[in-house]
């Protein structure tokens, strides 16, 4: 499936021992190419878990649905913060919708059903 690395943004996570996306992929699919930029071994192997998308410190990774599932791509970006994750979904007409999901610590109040 689909993750894509924006090579302009990817900086190999600066001085980190192991680049974050390479560390976190549950299928061990990410690696650093000879030009120092991250890439996926094969998009057919990707589970679309977005672990790499969220953890990238430069937001260089986007997830895209392949044409075999939806006719034209929707895109997802994310960013893990301390207690929440911020998300941006870009729709087919270019409109961008933002979401936040709480991640650690005190839960927000949820009205019961």
């Amino acid at each position: 499936m689909g993750i894509f690395v924006d090579e302009e943004r990817c900086n190999r996570c600066g001085t980190a021992d192991e680049p974050m996306c390479v560390r976190d992929c549950p299928g061990d699919l990410m690696f650093i190419k000879e030009n120092g930029k991250a890439a996926i071994v094969d998009n057919r192997e990707c589970w679309d878990c977005a672990a790499c998308v969220k953890v990238c410190p430069t937001q260089a990774i986007t997830m895209q649905l392949p044409t075999s599932l939806v006719v034209r791509g929707v895109q997802l970006r994310g960013r893990a913060m301390k207690h929440k994750t911020e998300w941006r979904i870009r729709l087919r007409d270019g409109e961008v919708k933002g979401y936040e999901t709480p991640s650690t610590g005190k839960p927000p109040f949820v009205p019961s059903l």
């Binding site: 649905l65 994310g78 729709l91 979401y99």
Partner: peptide, 23 residues
């Protein structure tokens, strides 16, 4: 929208497909 947010924290590509449906 709440469901889409919930999908984001468990099945992110489903959130994308639901967003497309909502579109």
């Amino acid at each position: 929208e709440g469901t889409i947010a919930s999908y984001l924290s468990m099945a992110p590509s489903s959130a994308m497909i639901m967003s497309d449906e909502a579109y």
